[in-house]
């Protein structure tokens, strides 16, 4: 039996529920030899800003138990280089491209989107409002419902394409910020971004990362991500969700879909295994076949809560 693997995130149809997470798959072509992006549901680009950004001084990463902490600092090539050098080939290959956007002001977010609106090949936008690494990089938007609603509304005015907002697990009120994004015009919510974390070198008596703090990702955060996806799905049942956090296997994907996600993003797993998104897709197909599932969409929100 073959399972229909297609899914929808609001108005956006995807061939399958597996996307790559922002910051873990370059701009979509970087790992094409190891993981052809056109075979995935889609790719989410590294966060793009109006101008190129240098990022943080190293050390930027540290491995932790079943996870890693990063403080890359939103290094990117800038929207112009992406539109000129990368997007045409993604479009030619038929890749579903979600452009991850950030800026230091609503105007900067809009500038990135306006530049992309002049091109073919962008399927949707994802607003990074929760990167915990750079003080000026947008953290305030994701933590304050009113700010988030106005930012989302400003970006909404820039495009008719699907607009996703990536929620921060560090926000004091996750559901409040989710509602604010939807009120501002978001079509879907992505969750979760990394958890603010730190690692300490006890001999040096210093933080391992140059920035002190970073964002924790990987399997260590999966249970938290599942709980948050379920809570937001419960609170906002008609809002499509894209689940992310420590996905390593096809069965992990099934768990996120059951919790209410319509699609998922694979991130840190790519660092362990650049072909992980395709491997996970194969595992999900086998899981569905084994469970007698005819369409993967049957799983979405299918969690049976114990009464």
């Amino acid at each position: 039996m073959t399972t229909d693997m297609s899914t929808r995130v609001g108005a956006l149809s995807l061939a399958n529920p597996i996307l790559t997470a922002s910051g873990t798959f370059g701009y979509g072509l970087d790992l094409a030899d190891l993981c052809p992006p056109e075979r995935l549901g889609g790719i989410v680009t590294k966060g793009l800003s109006p101008q190129p950004r240098r990022g943080n001084t190293p050390p930027r990463i540290v491995e932790t138990a079943a996870g890693m902490i990063n403080a890359i600092g939103l290094q990117n090539i800038g929207v112009e280089a992406f539109c000129r050098d990368v997007l045409p080939e993604l479009d030619a290959r038929g890749v579903t491209v979600v452009v991850n956007v950030f800026g230091e002001s609503p105007a900067a977010y809009r500038e990135v989107m306006a530049r992309c609106e002049r091109e073919r090949g962008v399927a949707a936008y994802e607003l990074n409002v929760s990167c915990p690494n750079v003080s000026a990089g947008g953290m305030e938007f994701g933590h304050d419902p009113a700010l988030l609603a106005s930012l989302t509304a400003a970006c909404r005015a820039e495009t008719a394409k699907p607009l996703w907002v990536k929620l921060s697990p560090n926000a004091p009120d996750l559901i409040g910020t989710g509602k604010a994004a939807v009120d501002g015009g978001a079509d879907a919510l992505t969750l979760i971004n990394t958890l603010r974390a730190m690692a300490i070198d006890a001999v040096q008596r210093r933080p391992v990362l140059q920035r002190g703090f970073g964002g924790l990702s990987g399997p260590a955060i999966k249970p938290i991500a599942l709980r948050m996806v379920w809570e937001v799905h419960w609170a906002l049942p008609s809002t499509p969700l894209v689940g992310i956090g420590g996905i390593e296997t096809g069965r992990d994907v099934a768990e996120f879909l059951l919790a209410g996600a319509s699609a998922v993003q694979v991130g840190t797993a790519v660092f362990r295994d650049p072909a992980a998104p395709l491997r996970i897709l194969g595992e999900l197909e086998r899981f569905c076949a084994g469970e007698g599932i005819t369409a993967v969409g049957e799983l979405i929100g299918g969690l049976q809560w114990p009464c």
Binding site: L31, L34, T57, P58, P59, R60, I61, V270, F271, P274
Partner: peptide
């Protein structure tokens, strides 16, 4: 030698500073 997560250019963990300031 720099701390490296992916080895294939996408994590940007292993950056080195060049003469022109780029990482």
């Amino acid at each position: 030698e720099e701390p490296m997560a992916c080895g294939v250019g996408v994590c940007l963990g292993c950056v080195v500073e060049l003469e022109d300031g780029r990482l």
